[in-house]
Amino acid sequence: MTTDTVPTRQRPSTDGQPLLRLTDIHSYYGNIHALQGISIDVFRGEIVTLLGANGAGKTTTLRTIHGLIHPKKGKIELDGRDITTMPAHEHVRVGIGQSPEGRRIFSRMTVMENLQMGGYSRKDKAGLHEDYERVFDLFPRLRERRSQAGGTLSGGEQQMLAMGRALMTRPTLLLLDEPSMGLAPILVEEIFAIMKDINRQGTTVLVVEQNALMALGAADRGYVLQTGTIVRSGDAKDLLEDPEVQKAYLGG
């Protein structure tokens, strides 16, 4: 399934302007101060992972990037353009796609209709057909089950559908919220392999994970979030070696 013929991947450059930049973001749920001034950079071509315990604010970070929550303070830039106050439904048009926490597929719509929803904002018929094929090639199971209701898929298949649906938006930046949640180890490997594949084909990835070992193994860099603040960041390799990170997230 993975394309082994692709030459070894060059480490993306982290000089210059990042694709995504969060600066001092503060997000709230009512009075709850969920993000307390976080700053994150994601550079073009990278896989960056966001780690942290339950309730640390990882999902809130992705929701804030996507405009589902608007921060009270701070700035979000995509390719230098300020998108802090942009409404959620406009994000696909600037190239942000997401596979959200809990998959959130449209249960009473078929697999095909779910994928069509991913392409909702696109007008390029030819490109859309190309991308359906690309998604079906990445996830052959979805091709078999294209007219089955999304809600009747297994957990793993639903995760594939959520990723496929996000890919149908043809994102330059793909946000993945716990793509391995609830999956058997072999399927986790498969999902990560596909994520690396997608990245090699040119999509920048910001992935939230509980499975820190897998995530750091696949990522270029990582950030560690703790109760709404970034407590560690750096190269994935260094984070893997970091005794604090090992103790907290790698069970070491």
Binding site: P87, A88, H89, P100, R104
Partner: peptide, 12 residues
């Protein structure tokens, strides 16, 4: 079915 999910697909 899911208002937030629809929004992230680009539905106003």
């Amino acid at each position: 079915i899911d208002r937030d999910a629809a929004q992230i697909m680009g539905v106003n």
